[in-house]
């Protein structure tokens, strides 16, 4: 099967990648473009560690053929990290020590961003519901829920940056 060129938006610019059919967005981001915040805990849609936003919607990039994001905007943890300092959600994760090994953290922050972009004042139930597809084996989830609550307080009204 011949390779094709796929174009999408990443970090505010257009990127072109040459891929074999059915190559995942996860593989392209990690191994062609070096966006290694996109993790690979299962590569079968089971853990959420590879969560990115496509046109603002959270998706597991391990199940997404890169052809499907042609012409769309892809957001990763790298692209929401400001040049100086950190995003309010990142700061909340630090403040609440909402990580131990850190491997699930990029996916947790991305799913939290998607939630807060849609719902700046989520209930605890809505937060737990949003995190349901993202697995963490270290923390027991409570510090992560607290971080998202903290981030909601910090960002509400102002809107989360980009």
């Amino acid at each position: 099967m011949a390779s094709t060129i796929v174009t999408f938006e990443l970090a505010g610019r257009e990127v072109e990648v040459m891929v074999k059919p059915m190559t995942t967005l996860q593989a392209v981001l990690r191994y062609q473009l070096g966006f290694t915040s996109v993790k690979e805990g299962c590569r079968q849609g089971g853990c959420g560690s590879c969560t990115v936003l496509v046109d603002g919607e959270p998706m597991m990039s391990c199940l997404l053929p890169v052809e499907d994001v042609a012409g769309r905007r892809v957001t990763t943890l790298e692209t929401i990290t400001p040049d100086e300092g950190v995003h309010p959600i990142q700061q909340a994760f630090i403040d609440h020590t909402a990580f131990q090994c850190g491997y699930c953290t990029p996916g947790m922050i991305m799913i939290s961003k998607a939630l807060l972009d849609h719902d700046p004042h989520p209930t605890r139930e809505a937060i737990v519901d949003a995190l349901a597809g993202n697995l963490c084996r270290c923390t027991g989830y409570e510090p992560i829920v607290a971080a998202v609550e903290g981030a909601a307080q910090a960002t509400a009204g102002k809107g989360a940056p980009r």
Binding site: G34, T36, E78, V86, I94, T105, I109
Partner: peptide, 23 residues
């Protein structure tokens, strides 16, 4: 006291390098 973890900034920015992040 609570002390910020030294690896925290790497974890929240995705810059912590895990084994398979090396190519």
């Amino acid at each position: 006291r609570s002390v910020a973890r030294s690896d925290g900034i790497g974890h929240v920015t995705g810059r912590t390098q895990y084994t398979t992040d090396h190519v």
